[in-house]
């Protein structure tokens, strides 16, 4: 089976500082669900940045969707990025756009016609419970509402891979459960999901999810919370 992501001996350093990520080697398969855990400063966000192609590693190789992501020409990056949905830790909503327009943004960037995006965006608004706030600007939304908009924007394009950085950090437990259901539904449709989280309770919510644990920039072996993996998480030295 072709992998979605393959990291081989990847290291990342910012500037001339010490390596933030060291010797990462793993493979992610299509349709799998991964939780990425680790203490603050362990390198979770840095690893996610490599996964959503915001950074290139300092060393090692990364293959993504069957292509070398490091030597990928710059003009081909947009095509790859459209296959990846991202939930940023700080939401990164466009402040002067409405909730509707923020959620529709990936579809518009992908060139979807206006008539074809109204239904999916409206359904998504309904799913995250923000139909009434469709015209609201992010500044008028609560933290939890902004997070739901950020998640809706990440999943609206049915990406092949979803990368989420603390996606349930600002929502109540009930909304967190609903959002995870959304991720799980997407995962059942074939999307590979990687969720970085501190919340160990989330790990219990998804059957078959696997765990990747980062410790001071190194990937440690999966803990005992790894249950019923659909496919093994391959960790290489």
């Amino acid at each position: 089976m072709q992998s979605v992501v393959e990291f081989d001996n990847v290291g990342l350093r910012y500037g001339t500082g010490a390596e933030t990520l060291t010797d990462l080697s793993f493979t992610l398969y299509p349709g799998s669900f991964y939780f990425l855990t680790g203490a603050s400063g362990a390198g979770k966000t840095s690893l996610l940045k490599l996964l959503y192609l915001a950074h290139r590693p300092s060393r090692g190789s990364i293959r993504m969707f069957g292509h070398d992501a490091i030597t990928l020409p710059r003009d081909r990056l947009p095509g790859f990025r459209r296959r990846i949905g991202v939930v940023f830790q700080d939401f990164r909503l466009v402040q002067h756009l409405s909730t509707f327009d923020n959620i529709a943004l990936p579809l518009r960037i992908a060139g979807i016609q206006e008539k074809d995006l109204i239904n999916p965006v409206t359904e998504m608004l309904d799913w995250i419970g923000l139909t009434e706030r469709a015209d609201a600007r992010p500044a008028t939304l609560s933290g939890g509402e902004q997070q739901r908009v950020a998640i809706a924007r990440a999943v609206i394009g049915r990406p092949e891979m979803l990368v989420a950085d603390e996606p349930t950090g600002n929502v109540d437990p009930e909304m967190a459960r609903r959002l995870l259901q959304l991720f799980e539904a997407l995962n059942r449709l074939g999307t590979t999901v990687i969720v970085a989280t501190h919340d160990i309770h989330l790990l219990q919510e998804i059957d078959g999810a696997q765990m990747m644990r980062l410790d001071k920039g190194r990937l440690s072996d999966p803990t005992g919370s790894l249950r019923h993996p659909p496919r093994p998480l391959v960790l290489r030295n």
Binding site: P78, R81, R82, R92, L105, I109
Partner: peptide
């Protein structure tokens, strides 16, 4: 810049 970065991360091209 932030809007442009967001667009980039979602697959927006330089020409867009």
């Amino acid at each position: 810049r932030t809007t442009i970065e967001i667009m980039h991360m979602m697959g927006g091209t330089d020409l867009q």
